[in-house]
């Protein structure tokens, strides 16, 4: 575990906490894409299939449980909690899951490190995570009305990806045989998707103005 990996995991954890805070305390999910949250459930469910079969550390297992549990509970709140569900921008959040999932399934079947069930599912989760934020970014662009917590949530998620890239660079130079092209390329694609959002986030922060995306 290096400092970049830890910083990445902590920003990821913070992003989930910010979102839960918004949903749990303010009872609002305005501006949050249910499609993206459902895709994250699928990402974690397919990636952590090994949760009971391979043990790395208490830290790893605990974090897996946290990410699985939090993503499930966010989706549950948005779908079934009456007050929260009322604030959901259903008409704007129209991205089709299959439009993202199908190419990821095909790509995972074609490009993977090993052709085993667990490995293909793991690879699928990497590809899907790379694009899972797209419905959220589309929703932001449509509503244009971004509250602070939603902005911080996406900022922290993007930060998590940035730290993971630093972690890979660090590990590449410090550990022998550490080469994972599929993880790196899909991770890089994922981080690049945040570039546009980051640009406007910093702009609004610099000018001390409310975050607004151009139409």
């Amino acid at each position: 575990m290096n400092i970049f990996r830890l910083a990445g995991d902590m920003t990821h954890l913070a992003s989930v906490l910010v979102l839960l805070l918004k949903i749990h305390t303010i009872k609002s999910c305005a501006g949050v894409s249910l499609k993206t949250q459902e895709l994250y459930v699928i990402v974690f469910a397919t990636r952590y299939l090994d949760i009971f079969t391979s043990f790395v550390s208490i830290y790893n297992s605990l974090m897996k449980l946290i990410f699985l549990g939090s993503s499930f509970s966010i989706v549950w709140y948005m779908r079934y909690h009456k007050a929260v569900h009322r604030t959901y921008d259903r008409e704007q959040d129209t991205f089709r899951h299959w439009f993202l999932m199908l190419p990821c399934i095909l790509l995972a079947l074609l490009i993977h490190e090993k052709f085993t069930f667990f490995e293909v599912m793991w690879t699928f989760s990497l590809y899907l995570e790379a694009v899972a934020i797209l419905p959220q970014l589309v929703l932001l662009q449509r509503t244009r009305n971004i509250d602070n917590l939603t902005g911080q949530y996406i900022f922290l998620l993007g930060g998590y990806r940035g730290f993971y890239i630093l972690n890979w660079i660090y590990r590449y130079f410090t550990e022998p045989h550490y080469v994972h092209w599929i993880t790196w390329i899909s991770g890089l694609v994922q981080t690049l998707l945040y570039a546009d959002f980051f640009y406007y986030y910093f702009l609004s922060w610099k000018n001390n103005k409310k975050l607004q995306l151009p139409a």
Binding site: R5, D9, D50, S54, N60, K64, F67, Y164, T183
Partner: peptide, 10 residues
């Protein structure tokens, strides 16, 4: 080597 296949990232 087999050890490098351990998935230790989240």
């Amino acid at each position: 080597p087999e050890d490098d296949d351990v998935k230790d990232e989240l």
